[in-house]
Amino acid sequence: MADFIFWVIWALIVASAALVAFGNNLIHSVFALMGTFLGVAGIYIFLNADFLAVTQIVVYVGGILVLLVFGIMLTNQISTAQISQSSVQKGLGLVVVLGVATIILTAVLPHDWVGSTLPMEFADTVTGIGNLLFTDYLILFEIASVLLLGALIGAATLARKEL
């Protein structure tokens, strides 16, 4: 049963990401992106990453997706035309992307990753992440807080009418 659910989520991620990449309507793409984000949260649960699954839903679905919808609403005339989107150089792009995908898959799949036969079942990751965040990763944590403050001020400054 768990196996079946895993492959359903797997297919959901691939299908919705394909709609993001190939869809003609921008609104359809942004809602398909929500399916991708929720599916990735499900994949995190299969990987015993409970904290990351919740963070994924809160930050991506609750934050970034809303920002993207706002971005679409503010940069299109919603009432006049349907929000279509066009692509350029589809053929060339497809060739390049298929080449990159082939390179990635031939690089990672045949390799025998050490320890890959014995997956680790984390019981609870929140305690471990909290401990690491305030010991080994303390400097990175502080830099991240400064970066978030900078991004907040920068976005507010940039979005003003008079620069």
């Binding site: 993001v20 497809l94 390049v96 992307v97 990159v100 995908a101």
Partner: peptide, 13 residues
């Protein structure tokens, strides 16, 4: 890898 490729296609086209 599939997700990365679809994202790359979106970015380039």
């Amino acid at each position: 890898a599939i997700l990365f490729s679809l994202g790359l296609y979106t970015v380039v086209t």
